[in-house]
Every structure is written in C-alpha cells, then in structure tokens.
Write a protein that binds this DNA or RNA. Structure first.
Lengths: 190, 190
DNA sequence: GTAGTAGTATACCGATTGGTATATTGGTTG
DNA sequence: CAACCAATATACCAATCGGTATACTACTAC
C-alpha cells in the first residue's frame, strides 16, 4: 500500500486540529489536505468526532505506554518521578503537535466535544499515576489517601511546563526537569 | 434602563462560551439566550469576534486591575507573591466561568481565533508580573535576567492550580495557597 | 415640530457545515 | 467465472453558519 488514506487522514487531521482547533477545522479541509474525498473519511471514521477519537486513541496510546513503562515503582520514588517526567517531556518534544492538541482539549470547556473526547485518555494517565502514588504510599506513610491529588498535581505541573515550552517561554531541558521534579517533591514531603 | 441588552449579551455569551467553547457556540444561540435578535448583537459588537474581544476586555480588565494592586513590590517578595496568588485564586473563585474560558483560550492552538483574542490580556498579565520580578531582582541578585521565565512560570503554576480546582481535583484553600507560593519560591531561590 | 440618531426587529443572503445516496472500481474468495 | 466486499468518487442534502439590507420606533437636540 503505497498510499494509506486512513493514516494520511489522521496525519493531516492532527496537524490541522493542533494548529487551529478541532471545532474550527472543517471535514472538507481535512479531506482536501489528505487528498481524498469525504466518503473516504466517513468510511474509516464514521464522523468527525470518530476521527478525533481515533486520532487520540492511536497517538495517545503511545503516550500512555511510555508513561506506563516509566511509572513502574520499585521503591525509589524520586527516581520514578524523574522517569515519568522525562517520559512526558520527551514525548512532548517528539510529538509537539499532538501534545499541543492534547493541552487544548485538556483545558477546553468540560461539555465541549473536544474535552469529552480526551477524557478517556486523561483518565488512563490519572489511573497510572494514582497507582504509582498508591504504591509509594506504602513506603511513605504521610502520603496516604492523597493519590488522586498527587496524580492530578503532577500531571498539571508537567502539562504547565510543556505548555510553556510549546509557547517558547521556557526550554524543556535537563535543568527544568530537575527543577520540576525537585519542586514537586518539595510539595509532597512537606 | 431596566434591560441592558448589551450587558445581557455579554453575560450569556460568557456562560455559553465557557461551557461549550467559543467556536462551538453560534451567534444565534447567544442572541436567543439573551432574548434579542442578531442585529442587536451586531450593533454593539460588530462581529462574533468583537463580542469575544469586548467580553475579554471587560472581565479581563477586572482581573488585571486586581493583579496590579496585588503586585506592587515594596521589598518583600514572598509577601507580594502571596498577595498575587491570592488575587488570582479569589478572582477565579468569584468568576469561575470567566476563568474557565480564559484557561481554554490560554492553551488553545496559537493560530485559533480564540487564542488570538486572549493574547492582549495574557500580555498585560505577563507585563505586570515581569515588572514585579524586575523590581525584585534589584534586591535578589541571583534573579537577574530571568523576569520573563519567572513571570510565565508563576502564571503557569497559578493557572494549573486554578484549572485543577475548576475540575474539582483540588481545593483553592489556604493550604494550597501556602503550598503553591512556597513551592514557587523554592524553585526561584535554588 | 422636525431632524437626527441609537436601538431593535423582520426577513433575507451566499457560503459552508457535517453527513449521505448512489455508483464504480479493484481485489479476494468460492 | 461469479459473487462479494472494501474503498473510493460524484453529486447531492437539509441545516446552519456569520453577517446584513431595510425599515420601524423612540428618544434627543435644536
């Protein structure tokens, strides 16, 4: 298959959604960018929303996998937090357009279609991080019963830094990585 | 004036934009919610974008004013940071719908209409906070030349916590306020 | 009183929206 | 070869989009 129309649609949809927003991009634009016609898109995805869902599931799956690998707790929480943050930062660097889309959907109005679509992906990340903190709480008694807040806060902090980096306010370098993890732990242990 | 159609339009536009997103809400919906017809809206605001601009200028002006009052530096940086953060938190609590809209536009794709519209308001906040850190740098030599990054990071941290609070992951209480300011300073001074 | 103006409604505009009915193609399977 | 099916295009749909031309009303200024 020299041309994979389905994959092409996803690629161009991602580019367009990330640069102008899901609502502002029309189905027509997507199919024109991908060099196909509408019935092709509706054959694969069923609807505009279906296209977004498929996009988030495919690309988001890679993110979840990377986080899952990084988040396996083996008794060293600072190390694990560093690995998780590294996973996010490097994913955001490699898939900056996708991460931009994720951020825009993350803070989109809760009853917007875009936010609804991203909810499952958010929940997966939240679950992974909650499990990490629940495990770690066995070794750090004072963390008990705060998994949810810790997970949300860590994800929030990471997303903030990635957002700032995407808008070129800061650089996702090692110094920032150190500062971020350090800062987060400082909030936890105290 | 028993009925102020202009003010009513702003109120209902804010509610709708904040709950479903600027792009997803039609002009027709706004005028129906406000109980008027389209020419009335176009009389006051000229365009859908003009309505958003006016909304952001009016409500955003109050935020900027509150931040400006809180951000006057008089030699005590921790105190000023606490006051600024308090200003944001209480504004977000009082105007939660508006702040929700702000956040969605903040991380919206850079070339989306919504993000363009919110840029001036973001710049005003950035300028205020940069000025604060520039002043403070006179007393804290090691802060020199990082105003921009400090301002962006502080705003990012505040917005993260407000975002988490709006999605009911955490509470914008005094404990969080203390932790947030403490955490941010820990990142600065080290 | 009359001229002007801000505010508002009715009725309309062309363009675009997300989505589809129908037909054709080309490969796979029996 | 025949039947089937996934994949694709042409051409179309009603509905909605942001925006406006026109006219009427009510108030203000002179």
């Amino acid at each position: 298959m020299a041309y994979d129309n389905r994959a092409n649609l996803v690629i161009h949809a991602l580019r367009l959604f990330a640069s102008r927003g899901y609502d502002a991009v029309s189905v027509q634009e997507v199919v024109e960018a991908a060099g196909v016609t509408k019935p092709t898109l509706y054959h694969y995805f069923g609807s505009k929303r279906g296209l977004l869902d498929a996009l988030l599931a495919e690309r988001g799956g890679r993110l979840v996998q990377a986080v899952q690998e990084a988040a396996s707790y083996r008794g060293d929480l600072p190390l694990t937090l560093r690995k998780v943050t590294i996973a996010y930062f490097s994913f955001a660097r490699e898939q900056s357009a996708f991460y931009r889309l994720l951020l825009s959907l993350w803070l989109a109005p809760p009853s917007s279609e875009g936010h609804q679509a991203v909810l499952p992906l958010l929940q997966q990340q939240q679950d992974l991080l909650e499990a990490l903190f629940a495990q770690a709480a066995k070794d750090h008694g004072n963390m008990k019963g705060r998994h949810q807040a810790y997970a949300a806060t860590l994800l929030g902090m990471i997303n903030t830094y990635v957002g700032l980096a995407l808008n070129e306010h800061i650089d996702l370098d090692d110094a920032l990585l150190y500062q971020a993890v350090h800062q987060f732990q400082h909030g936890i242990y105290s």
